[in-house]
């Protein structure tokens, strides 16, 4: 999977967040629900996937790795 595109999306969304280091993006409150919705919109367009409300759990968005895993899973489904 193309991590670079993902990092670019993330950086555009929240330039102030250190996505490499932070492994608790949601649990620490760094990403709020608005960020998540915007991010999901971008991801759906970029990777041609469908992320539903049931995929929105902190575990899926807490780190870049988790987000990658989510995208990969949805692409394979």
């Amino acid at each position: 999977m193309d991590t670079e595109a993902l990092m670019k999306i993330l950086a555009e969304l929240r330039p102030d967040v250190d996505f490499e280091e932070n492994k608790e993006l949601v649990d620490s409150g760094e990403l709020d629900s608005f960020d998540i919705v915007s991010l999901v919109g971008e991801l759906c367009d970029a990777y041609d996937i469908e992320i539903g409300a049931d995929d929105i759990v902190p575990e899926n968005f807490n780190s870049v790795e988790a987000i990658c895993a989510l995208i990969t899973r949805l692409q394979e489904d």
Partner: peptide, 19 residues
């Protein structure tokens, strides 16, 4: 409200199209 109303609404096709 966030998990059961807000996400389903804002991620719904309608609102994504609206966006």
């Amino acid at each position: 409200f966030r998990d059961y109303v807000f996400y389903p609404l804002s991620l719904s096709k309608f609102f994504q199209k609206l966006g």
